[in-house]
């Protein structure tokens, strides 16, 4: 029972320390995620602007021609170079008539803005949304909406990135907090009461000592009597 109680206390302290480190981890992860969101929005805005320029004049809606246009204007490799951790795989360009007719689910509302409640914009696993979706409409002559640009980025590599970059910090924090917990235990540890001279003898053993004393006294007396009779002889 004594050991079980100690084990439970240690477990609770370790859980407290780990929950504290987890809070810091979530804070770091959210910072990284916010940074990725800003990057994704800027990226989508840039592509949407180019799409507006290109598709205002081009009626063919060819992905090949738009890719060549983007490559000539910005450079397709340079376009995603701002993303250091996770890059968008696909830049989706959907046109208004395809969205209205229901040919494609773009995850937008009636104003062609991102609909956060749409299922296609969510991928919930491990208690958080695993992807971030940035959607920007593009316009013909800055007036009429002709389509949207949709970009998805994966959040999972961010978890690994946050963990790997801060691993040493978390480890040191774990060790320091454990050390602090141990120092706190030493500080609050109860002092043992001062030991009396006679307290080392238990009550039960006093009786047996008395019996032993009696027996020894008897032996000594017998020995004395024997030696007295020998002297008389």
């Amino acid at each position: 029972m004594y050991y079980l109680r100690r084990f439970i206390i240690i477990l609770v302290i370790q859980l407290l320390i780990l929950s504290f480190i987890s809070t810091i981890f979530i804070f770091n992860f959210n910072l990284e995620r916010e940074s990725l969101k800003i990057q994704s929005k800027q990226f989508t805005e840039l592509v949407a602007k180019q799409a507006g320029i290109f598709f205002s004049n081009d009626k063919s809606r060819s992905s090949k021609d738009f890719l060549a246009f983007l490559d000539s204007k910005i450079g397709i490799d340079e376009l995603s170079s701002a993303f250091t951790i996770t890059k968008p795989d696909i830049i989706s360009v959907y046109f208004v008539d395809d969205i209205i007719s229901g040919k494609v689910n773009a995850g937008v509302d009636e104003n062609f803005q991102k609909n956060d409640k749409s299922e296609i914009n969510q991928d919930k696993r491990f208690f958080f949304n695993n992807k971030y979706v940035a959607i920007k409409p593009f316009y013909k002559n800055n007036d009429e909406t002709i389509g949207v640009v949709r970009v998805e980025v994966d959040n999972i590599p961010l978890v690994l990135r946050t963990l790997s970059t801060n691993a040493v910090f978390y480890l040191l924090l774990f060790l320091i907090l454990n050390n602090q917990a141990f120092l706190f235990y030493l500080w609050t540890k109860k002092k043992r009461p001062p030991v009396d001279d006679s307290s080392y003898i238990k009550e039960g053993s006093i009786g047996s000592i008395k019996i032993m004393q009696k027996i020894i006294n008897q032996i000594i007396e017998d020995h004395k009597n024997d030696s007295n009779t020998n002297d008389k002889k």
Binding site: S63, I76, I90, Y94, D154, A167
Partner: peptide
């Protein structure tokens, strides 16, 4: 774990996705 996070970031460029005239998804990339 750190290696895994960088392994996912290989040399790829984004693809362009559009819906073509036959209502199918079409992809183009480099």
């Amino acid at each position: 774990l750190s290696l895994n996070s960088f392994a996912s970031n290989n040399h790829r460029t984004p693809l362009i996705e559009t819906i073509n005239s036959s209502n199918k998804l079409e992809y183009s990339g480099y």
